[in-house]
Structures are given as C-alpha cells and as structure tokens.
Nucleic acid binder design. Structure first.
Lengths: 230, 230
DNA sequence: TAGGATTTGTGCGTATGTATT
DNA sequence: TAATACATACGCACAAATCCT
C-alpha cells in the first residue's frame, strides 16, 4: 500500500478508531461495510482493509453473516491491559527520551491551561479529547517507535473502557469533576517536570497516575466511596 | 472473520511469518500474491488479508505496481526494538506469572536436553527453531495476553535480524557455536529457576540474556573480538 | 521517450453463513 | 422447520502504478 491510497487508509483508520474510543461507536454496535463505503465515497474494499486492521488490533470482531461488531472487554482482560500500561508508562523517560526544548515546554504549559479551563466547566467529551491530546504530546518525549506504537494500543484500549465505565455510573458528574481534578494535577506535575528537563520524573509521575486511575476505576466498579480530596 | 476462514488465515499467517523470520524469505525478497494464492489453493483475497496483517506488523511493505517486499531494518531501529524487548522480558515474572507445575518444569528440562544435543552438533536452522520454541515455552509462564502479544512481535522482529547478521559474518561457525553455548546457559539457568518456582528470577535471567545477546550483536557488527569464554 | 509486461489496488457480483419470522 | 432478509467472505475482472527495454 502506498501513496494516495495509504493516506486515505490512515485517515479512515484514525477516524474510526477515534469513534470507537470516544464511544461514538459503543461496544456491541454493528458497523456495516456498505454504510462506511458510502460515507467515505469508496467501495467496500478499502473499508475492509481498515476494518481488518481494527480487528487485528482488537477493536472489532467480524462475524461472517452477522456484521462487524465493536468489541467489549471484561474487567479481567482490562486489568491485564492496565498492568502492562503502567509498566510501559515509565519507559517514556528511560528509552530514548528527547531533551525537551522551550517549544515543548510551552506545549505542556498550554495543555495545563486547557485543563484548568476544563475544570471550570466539566464536559465528558472535551475531557476525553484533552486526555487523548495529552497522551499524544507525551509520546513526543520518546523517540522509541515500538514503545510509541504499543503505548498507543494500550492507551486506546483502556481509555474507551474507562469512558464506558465512567458514563454508566450514578452521579457521574461528580466523578467527572473529580477525575478532571486528578488529571489537572497530573498535567500540572508533568508540565513542571518537562520544564526542568526531568524526563525520568515524567515517566514516574505518569506511571503513578495511570496506576491510580485504574485503582479508582476498580474501586468505583466495586461501589466503594472515593477517598476524600485532601 | 470466523470459523474455517479464520483457521486458514491463522495457518497461512503463522507459516509466512515463520518463513520471514527463519529467512526463508530474506529481507528484500518480493512475494507475489498470485504465487501464494496458487500455493495455498485459494484466490488472492484471503492472501491479501494475511499480507495486510504482516504489513501492519512491519514484516512486509506492499508497493503498488511493484510487489510485496520483505522489510529490512536498520541498526538504529533494531536498537529501539531491542531496548524495549529487554524491558518487557523482565515483566514475564511480574505480570500474572503462573505457578509452574511439574509438567512445566519437565518441559523446560526437555528444552535443556535439546539444547545440549544441539551444542554437540551446531546447526543454524535447528538453533533458530529451538530458540523460537523456547520463546514460546517462556510465554506460557505469564497469563498477561497483551504482554504475550507484544513480546511475540518484538521477538520475531529481532530474531530474524539477528539471524541475518549472524549468517553474514566470516567464521560464523565459531559464532554459532558460541551463541549456542550462551543459549545453553540461559536455558539451563531458567530451567533451574522454573523448577524452584522463582518466576521473578526467570524474568531477570531472561532480561540479562536478551541484553547481552544484543551487546554481542553490536560488538560483532563493529568487528570487535568477542570476550573469551571464562 | 514510449510502450509493453508485471504487480498491487479497487469495484462488484456471487457464495456462504446467521438470525428472525 | 422452512423461508426470507441481510451481512461478511470470496473470486474475478479491470484500473493504476512501476519497471524495463
């Protein structure tokens, strides 16, 4: 695959994955090749190429005669994904970290500003988008491509389930506000560390926050009360 | 994809990947969809499904009008892959390690025996196969599926390049014998650790050997003399 | 430079499998 | 249980791109 076709492939792939992970296509939904072909003004063939990749990566499952279904994930599998994600998070600061220049520091500062604005008017979708943007910014701190690729896979898999779980809760508005608060602290701490050029510290902060995020997710799944904000 | 078609897909995928990684298809070789379709007695369509996955995983690159070419990899990229592989190796003992039963210990013992036999009559292809079998046996020690999947990707990518580099050297017979010797030690140490149920130790031994293996590879690429066997 | 040979990419009709009535 | 509707899997023909003479 090369040239123009390649570009179209990447575009459709990124868009569909984004829809899956932002729950525009929630787990269980059936995607129809024909509909997608019509939307992207092409035939079924290039669409099938994209769906095949999304299936290989675990976002979809095609069943002959039925349809192409957005996968769900059980809590046990999710735990495995999260545990690996925790370990990989720290490697950002260990494997080929880049020395952040002033421009990079500014980008992290801008991220903090966006986060503060969000905290004032919480919104789930905006939070999801900001979270995703922050992830991609973090990934620019390492030049290790396999690490980038794997981190991305784990991130998208966990995030969509995180969103699904969060959305299904009673009083999820409080939860959302609370999560945005935790996230603001993370972004803030990491922005500071980046400004100092302390990449290893960035990895450790990230690791801690990913781990805590999953701990809160499990706690809520069990119906526990959240520890008070100190 | 489901049922019979799925099984065929997996079979062809595993076989082609094996051919790529054992250098039956060395880097640069052009695969023709038509030929593969004939060999597996099917049309181009299912073959293209397999090639697409192999391309997504980095083993192949399809170029419109030219062919589907087995990728090569530069030493810089290989270093990135190896460094991540070193880190993931240790996780076998940390993320959902299984408690090995007597049968598992026996399997590792059998692996050691095969390795000792190989040391007496070195053979590159047999070594590659044994190495691959040992890898898969190691993977049974964790139940973390994402870790299994990523480790597998990194293993296959590094192994084929390792083989390519090793095969191209002057006096590679000595190198081969030496590498088999190192490998025998690794298998032996790990078999012992498994027998003790010391999974964390298994991960540490593995990590050390993966790291040393890459160090030797780089040293040979620079044309250094190998340190003497003590 | 032009044209023919070759190979992958695309489009679409048909086969096959599933679910529902 | 059988028939019908419908979606993916497959195979083939043709378009598009590249290479070589």
């Amino acid at each position: 695959m090369t040239g123009e076709g390649r570009a179209r492939f990447e575009r459709i792939y990124a868009l569909l994955r984004s829809r899956i992970c932002l729950l525009d296509y929630p787990p269980g939904v059936r995607l129809r090749e024909e509909d997608l072909a019509k939307e992207f003004e092409t035939s079924r063939t290039p669409i099938r190429r994209v769906l095949a990749r999304l299936e290989d990566e675990g976002y979809l499952r095609s069943v002959h005669g039925v349809g192409t279904i957005v996968t769900d994930i059980d809590i046990a599998s999710l735990e495995q994904v999260y545990r690996l994600r925790v370990e990989l998070s720290e490697l950002i600061g260990k494997l080929s970290p880049v020395t952040p220049d002033e421009e990079a520091a500014d980008l992290f500062g801008a991220m903090r500003a966006r986060c503060e604005a969000l905290a004032k008017s919480p919104n789930q979708r905006a939070f999801a988008q900001l979270n995703m943007d922050f992830f991609h910014l973090l990934m620019t701190l390492t030049e290790n491509e396999p690490l980038q690729e794997f981190s991305e896979r784990l991130y998208y898999q966990t995030t969509r389930i995180w969103l699904k779980t969060a959305a299904g809760l009673d009083g999820y508005e409080d939860t959302l506000a609370s999560e945005i608060d935790f996230f603001l602290r993370e972004v803030s701490d990491i922005a500071t560390a980046v400004a100092c050029g302390a990449l290893e510290t960035v990895g450790q902060i990230r690791r801690a926050h990913v781990a805590m995020s999953f701990a809160r997710l499990k706690a809520r799944a069990r119906g526990d009360a959240l520890p008070e904000d100190s």
